[in-house]
Design a protein around this nucleic acid. Structure first.
Length: 848
RNA sequence: GCGGAUGUGGCGGAAUUGGUAGACGCGCAGCGUUGAGGUCGCUGUGGGGUAACUCCCGUGAAGGUUCGAGUCCUUUCAUCCGCACCA
């Protein structure tokens, strides 16, 4: 071998690792365990750079921990249920199962050249009946434990295709295929009782000290604990059975500023009026022509309809407020009804202005001018304000104190009670779709809803389904629904809803600890491997997937499938950024712009025609913008190590990284340089000096800094240190032996990031066995510190000079040296400094 | 609309968490190697000023705290992510 040749060596090292069983996870009571997990992929059929980044990071950790002596579990699987398979079935007539498994085979083949240290013997897909059957078994346990129940909930309904739509299938309020205006419709659906864990999921966030603060904050906000007042207005002119209207407010201190009440279009009162009043029916129908997403509801133009009904203010029964149906009131939060205080809520103010309602100030600012027209005065709750319509005269107090006082006052006067509320809603898991885990229940005419007997699990999806019509193929399957009731034995029908794919991904981490077991988990395996020590994935999962997994682990514990120690399944979490690329496009006359793949562009011109392209700043790689780079193309051009090295080198892992061709080439050049360096000291020897103290120091500094970089998830810094170390070796005139020693350490330090090249070097320089199985080097602390430090001298905070002093020199001695410095003498010009600050080992500041 | 984040040279980023701003890499320039190009090896490179110095300015913008601010505080602008049926 005479040059760096990843095309041949990478595959052979992968064979060597497999032959050595280097990555097979084993329960080893004598070693500490380490479980590294990257969020498993959806098998779209093609790996992309985002996958490469995610798995490269996990691989660095896995290989590093393995070198540190841990027994490592680093598995891979497939999040294989979901809509894309059904879309492919509709568009191309393929079977979702065949399509999915073919994709899995393709993606596995694309992943293997990356040389990841994965234990492939544990691989599974969530669409394997062996997996989803265990999931059904747990569903039945959770149903028995009261963690699952049924209730009505709204879905997006396409009135033309007569089918339920996902939020992403609703474009501008219309169905993506039919183009029909989408409606909200109620269906009976299955729910997980996640709200029973609201408080626990919130307080337990404090213990997740190795999670990013932003993720914990987002989860806390999502759970949305609030303290407020719930009370009932008495109504005037309302239909029978609606003589009270329950409302919830987080600002009871503004009750005296209420000028209207508003209810959700989905509120029972609104539904009653809808049936009896054509004007209300028309308005509510309009409101329902908005999707179900909170975003769509909140962004929609604020509209209301006066019902003619009035409510009496609880503290002045002669004071009547109008009741509106308003499209921005959410039925799912609080009681679905509120009072409006326009003076201190922007949305209420906009509404009041639109419908000519009064605005009554409850408090006024103490520090600024009076309220600006059309801008509600909404101070922080901690800001003191002067109450002019409070409950205890014109006090100066904070909103916080006033809210507490208001709740106490209302309770004392029999107006409602203080309640704690959570924004978190129960998790609706029903999907009216085929390609998901069947919900294992049976509808029996005499017994009602009955769980399937565990002996009959898994409830398998039928393979012979058709997608020529919209709707759920399970509903119209000729035989699949027919079954017998496990309770009475009578003919009955299967549930045709399947589970949300988030259920599949809420426990796969536990299944990896015993992937072939006949029960969902195995106690000894779960006890040994759980928890996941390091979980890595995108921030887009910061809320839903992670919250659902935290709930599911608790539910699994409650049903005996996980130990109590595993209710927080992910000890440490790392959220990585996206991979971006510039976008290239050309515009021809009025036609919409044409996008071009990076490989079709060179020097700002199309390779084929020479036409200049417009360059749009880097954005997330996406097929529609064609700003994608195929990892396989990079691997075949430069090798996997280059792809891994570059994608980890250029940005901090939590931030977005821009893929650039020049950066990838630079990574390849560097790896080649390291290879040649090793080749030279292996063959022709080094310089004259037998030993080079600077090189030894550099080696130990590199060990220390690369280790720190990996431990601290700063792979970009670890790589920068490896560049520095390479420069140190190249510059050193040490002997061949000394350089060989340094380069062996180089191989070890590079091995988590560029594992194949590391093996090349290790073998060239006579390392024993595989570097993948070598122990991580240790830095000698004595070699990390130098005995002299360079102290910058600042004059009025600006660096003007520097002195070199012994590391431990006393500050008084340093002061003498500073005052003797010629720059300092010149600037002081004879007068003494006003102040002289010496920060030992850091800096000196002379104030004049 | 609500919630979360990010902003530093021509570019990606570093800065021991309040202590030398720009490590390392890209790009660019010069020199050497090579028949040319590429590779490879050295050297230089924030902006401005000067014959020269270490003279001025510099971390999205504006204010503030401090001996000292990229880092802390206030206001503001821009971009990105999530919003419960996308995975």
């Amino acid at each position: 071998m005479s040059r760096y040749d990843p095309a041949t060596t990478e595959a052979s090292w992968q064979r060597a690792w497999n032959a050595a069983g280097a990555f097979t996870a084993r329960r080893d009571p004598d070693r500490p365990k380490y479980y590294v997990l990257e969020m498993f992929p959806y098998p779209s059929g093609r790996i992309h750079m985002g996958h490469v980044r995610n798995y490269a990071m996990g691989d660095v950790i896995a290989r590093y921990k393995s070198a540190c002596g841990y027994s490592v579990l680093h598995p891979m699987g497939w999040d294989a249920f979901g809509m894309p398979a059904e879309n492919a079935a509709m568009e191309r007539g393929v079977n979702p199962k065949d399509w999915t498994y073919a994709n899995i085979a393709d993606m596995r083949a694309q992943m293997q050249p990356l040389g990841l240290s994965i234990d492939w013997s544990r691989e599974f897909a969530t669409c394997d009946p062996e997996y989803y059957g265990q999931q059904q078994s747990m569903f039945i346990d959770m149903l028995a434990a009261g963690l699952v129940y049924r209730k009505n909930a709204v879905v997006n309904w396409d009135p033309v295709d007569m089918t339920v739509l996902a939020n992403e299938q609703v474009i501008d309020g219309r169905g993506w295929r039919s183009g029909a205006v989408v409606e909200r419709r109620e269906l009976t659906q299955w729910f997980f009782r996640i709200s029973a864990y609201s408080e626990e999921l919130l307080t337990a966030l404090d213990g997740l000290t190795h999670w990013p603060d932003k993720v914990r904050l987002m989860q806390a906000n999502w759970i949305g604990k609030s303290r407020g007042l719930q009370f009932a207005f008495s109504t005037v002119g309302a239909p029978d059975g609606f003589d009270r209207l329950e409302v919830y407010t987080t600002r009871p201190d503004t009750l005296m500023g209420a000028t209207f009440a508003a209810i959700s279009p989905d509120h029972p009162l609104a539904k009653y009026l809808e049936r009896h009043d054509p004007a209300v029916a028309a308005f509510v129908a309009e409101c329902r022509k908005v999707g179900t997403s909170e975003e769509a509801l909140e962004k929609a133009e604020k509209r209301g309809l006066d019902t003619g009904i009035r409510v009496r203010h609880p503290f002045d029964t002669a004071w009547e407020l109008p009741v509106y149906i308003a499209n921005f009131i959410l039925m799912d939060y609080g009681t679905g009804a509120v009072f409006g205080c326009p003076a201190h809520d922007q949305r209420d103010l906009d509404f009041a202005r639109k419908y000519g309602l009064d605005v009554l100030d409850v408090f006024t600012p103490t520090t600024r001018d009076d309220r600006v027209e059309d801008q509600a005065f909404v101070p922080l709750k901690s800001e003191p304000v002067r109450y002019v319509r409070g409950f205890a005269g014109s006090d100066l107090q904070t909103g916080e104190a006033a809210i507490t006082a208001a709740i106490a006052f209302c309770e004392a006067n029999g107006v409602g009670h203080g309640v704690t509320n959570y924004r978190l809603r129960d998790w609706g898991l029903s999907r009216q779709r085929y390609w998901g885990c069947p919900i294992p229940v049976i509808h029996c005419a005499s017994c009602g809803v009955v769980p399937e007997a565990k002996a009959n699990l898994p409830v398998r999806l039928p393979d012979d389904v058709t997608f020529d019509k919209p709707g759920n193929p399970l509903d119209r399957h000729p035989t699949w629904r027919a079954c017998t009731c496990p309770k009475c034995g009578a003919a009955a029908q299967r549930e045709t809803d399947t589970m949300d794919t988030f259920v599949d991904s809420s426990w796969y981490y536990a299944r990896f600890t015993a992937p072939q077991a006949a029960t969902p988990t195995v106690a000894e395996d779960a006890a040994y491997w759980m928890n996941v020590d390091q979980y890595i994935g995108g921030v887009e999962h910061a809320i839903l997937h992670l919250l659902y997994s935290r709930f599911f682990a608790r539910a699994m514990h409650a049903t005996g499938h996980l130990p109590a120690s595993a209710v927080e399944p992910f000890d440490a979490l790392f959220t990585q950024g996206m991979v971006t690329h510039e976008i290239y496009l050309t515009r021809d006359n009025t036609a919409r712009p044409a996008y071009h793949l990076p490989e079709e562009v060179e020097d700002g011109k199309l390779k084929a025609t020479g036409q200049a392209v417009e360059v749009i700043p880097s954005a997330k790689m996406s097929k529609s913008k064609k700003n994608v780079v195929d990892p396989l193309a990079i691997i075949s051009a430069f090798g996997a190590d280059t792809a891994r090295w570059f994608i980890l080198s250029d940005s901090p892992p939590e931030r977005d990284v821009e893929w650039t061709a020049s950066g990838a080439e630079a990574a390849f050049r560097h790896l080649g340089r390291v290879w040649r360096l090793a080749d030279e000291c292996g063959k022709r020897g080094g310089g004259d000096a037998a030993q080079d103290p600077a090189l030894i120091r550099a080696t130990h500094r590199a060990i220390h800094e690369v280790t720190q970089g990996i431990e601290g998830f700063a792979f970009n810094k670890a790589i920068a240190k490896l560049y520095e170390f390479t420069n140190s070796v190249a510059k050193s005139d040490a002997s061949a032996e000394a350089k060989t020693e340094a380069m062996r350490t180089m191989a070890q330090l590079m091995s988590p990031i560029a594992p194949h090249l590391a093996e090349d070097i290790w073998a060239m320089l006579g390392g024993a066995g595989l570097v993948a199985q070598a122990r991580w080097p240790k830095a000698d602390p004595a070699l990390l510190v130098s005995d002299h430090v360079v102290l910058p001298i600042q004059i009025n905070g600006k660096r003007r000079a520097e002195i070199s002093v012994p590391k431990d020199m006393a500050p008084t001695e340093v002061e003498k040296l500073v005052l003797a410095d010629e720059t300092v003498i010149r600037v002081l010009a004879g007068s003494p400094p006003k102040k002289l600050i010496v920060v030992p080992g850091r800096i000196v500041n002379v104030v004049i």
